[in-house]
Computed example of a mutant assay.
Amino acid sequence: MTAPTPRQARISIIGAGPGGLTCARILQRQGIAVTVYDRDPDRDARNQGGTLDLHADNGQIALREAGLLDDFFRLCRPEGQENRILHIDGELRAHLVPDDGELFKPEIDRGQLRDLLLDSLTPDTVRWGHGLTGLSGPADGPRTLHFADGTTVETDLVIGADGAFSRVRPAVSPAVPQYVGVSFAEAWFHDVENQHPELSALVGQGSASAADGERALWGQRNSGNHIRVYIMRKVPVDWITRAGLQRDDTAAIRAHLLDEFAAWGPRMKHMITDNDGAYVDRPIFALPVPHTWEHNPTVTLLGDAAHLMPPLGVGVNLAMLDAGELALALAGSATVDEAVCGYESIMLPRSVETAKMLEGHAEDLLSGDLPPEFGDDDGQP
């Protein structure tokens, strides 16, 4: 098959997360048609998660190419860059406060960012209720997308932006994510100024965390008077069932967690005892390092589908940077094949280098040492 030009090609993005939507927005700004397929039944089907910090040297670059940077600055929370490191008794250990006008990595709720991107697209760009089950067809195209509802779509380029357990990835790579040994239990707190004033004061306008080398608590301010807490521990991936617990038995899980954090002070334990609703189990996975694949002219990946790493501050930023570079490569290339080659020649070395830097560092989230930006202290939790 002769490789089509990007403006003639049928381009399909799988996944309506920040990476997929950023790619779609920039393609449309460049006059290139695109369709996004997502498994959710509609845009409001589920909570989109916590807050994100978008960095000036990657995520914000993509938003500038998308023509949305000013809108982002109107929505973001620069005060969310505040960072408190606490002792396990809740006393302040170190404190970073952003300067006035500091916009290097302001926070925005994931849902707000998604809405900003969705509302920027032409109507009907996203096809909801399309969970990909696989794809078929020759490597040089066209490809056929197979969806859970039994429908199929023929396409010339498949862009896998469908996250950690991508259904597109097997078309180019046999790699599967592996558990890194650290798991988060996510807890939600609502109307915190009124219902959880002690936690609100402890966390401040940004985030507050403490760690003892084996476990950590990290509270993060979200918009709308909400806080999310991540209870981090080095545990087996199936720790709930191994402990004889049921996922929906919040009281029993709370008792188990309190036993693990027995040495911690009561101010910190509020992060475990006072949450509104159930805990959400979030084991952390990463792709093998290095993760690369042989070039395929009709399939490529971006974001976590391409380079899933531990959550150490780079994920969404790299996904959006990938998205912008892929979209601009398509806009500036004679063929889809040429564009994918050009994009992967930049993205893959960058992602491999970053993944090597982060490999094995998930346990740093549990370390009692101060992060480098805080300088040194006695190293005690």
Rank of each mutant, 00 (worst) to 15 (best):
A9Q: 03
I13M: 10
G20Y: 12
A24H: 05
L27K: 03
Q30K: 14
G50K: 05
T51P: 10
L54E: 01
H55R: 10
F72D: 02
L75H: 05
C76K: 02
G80E: 03
D89G: 14
E91H: 15
E91A: 15
D100T: 02
E102V: 15
F104P: 00
G111I: 00
L113M: 13
R114P: 00
D115V: 14
D115H: 15
L116Q: 10
L117W: 04
D119A: 12
P123I: 13
T125G: 14
R127P: 15
G131N: 07
S136E: 11
G137H: 03
D140W: 01
G141L: 05
T144D: 02
T144H: 07
A148V: 15
V158I: 08
G160W: 07
V168Q: 04
S173E: 05
V182Q: 15
A185N: 12
E186W: 00
A187E: 06
L199E: 01
V203I: 14
G206C: 09
S207T: 12
A210M: 08
D212M: 02
G213S: 09
R228M: 14
Y230F: 11
M232I: 00
D238I: 00
D238P: 10
W239Q: 13
A243S: 14
L245H: 03
D248I: 01
D249W: 05
A255V: 01
H270Y: 02
T273N: 15
N275K: 06
N275L: 15
A278S: 13
V280S: 15
D281E: 13
A286E: 12
A286M: 08
A286N: 07
T298Q: 09
L302Q: 01
A305D: 01
G313P: 10
L321G: 06
A323G: 01
A323W: 03
G324D: 04
E325W: 12
E325P: 03
E325G: 07
L328T: 02
A329G: 02
G332F: 11
P349G: 07
V352F: 02
K356Y: 11
K356C: 09
E359K: 13
H361Q: 05
E363C: 00
D364V: 00
G368H: 10
L370K: 04
G375P: 09
Q380M: 09
